[in-house]
Amino acid sequence: MSDRRTAGFYWLAALFALFVLFLYGPMITIFVLSFQGPQGGLTFPMNGVSLHWFSHLWEGLGVVDIWAAFRRSLKLGSIVMVLTVVLSLLAGLAYRKRFPGSNLLFYVVVASLIVPSIVVSLGIGLEFRLVDDAIKSLSDTFGWSFLDGYTTAMGLYTSGLGAQLTWTLPFGLLICFAIFNRFDRRYEEAARDLGATPWQSFAHVVLPIIAPSVVGIGLFGFTLSWDEVARSSQAIGDVNTLPLELTGLTTTVTNPEIYALGTLTTGVSFIVIFTALGLMQMLRRRTARALRAAA
């Protein structure tokens, strides 16, 4: 046996390089083009390098209030994140015991991943319109004056939030399955043996041990919401999230401003991820300091 690499190695290495290029190429292209000079266009070559399009973006995109959309997405993403963490963690805990209908519930949840997003979105939109019609006809029939101004129950934090949760919760639940599959039950037995109540055992033993994975669920929830388009598209109501605005802009904006926006939103995703990683690093360092102090 020799250590020389075979031709297969080089073929596979080339294939992998192509894969990486395909994965990151678009992002890098957008990133570079967002620094296009003031006279530059939507494609290469670069016509100088500047922050021109970022400053344009800062002043707003004409009719579209991009910063309002930015704030909306940030807020919605945070709510989705918290709900995804809490609900999937609770569901994950429930699935550690057998309960009647657990299989059926699992299939229902996972079906939400399999049904095409646009269909889910259309369905939610339709459902809300039915509710709206029902409320309107009720108010007409009974002459409820307090419902006079009522238009729709659809909105960012009703149908929009629900639509995004149909996407993030199944992922959250699947991650929880993985977490609890690996979790050693003896930790809980030990806690119980030492007199902990079920709540104390969860708060002082289970949660701290799975904390890094829980941060992972949160990250997942936020980033899935942050760039979600298909499910939100028909269910968001009268205001748009950032990715929906972006989708609209691709047809109307004809300058590199849109790339600057792309760079910015990607940047936010990275900030969220690195903040989370930094948080874990900090926790680890604090432990290490305690250890040094003890040594």
Binding site: D184, R186, Y187, E189, A190, A191, L194, G195, A196, T197, Q200, H204, V205, P208, I209, A290, A294
Partner: peptide
């Protein structure tokens, strides 16, 4: 417990003090 089931996120002292803490 077999292989001890010490709480991995707690120091020796905190592991031992756990039953008093709860």
């Amino acid at each position: 417990f077999q292989s001890y089931a010490l709480f991995p996120h707690l120091t020796s002292a905190d592991n031992v003090a756990f039953s008093l803490k709860v």
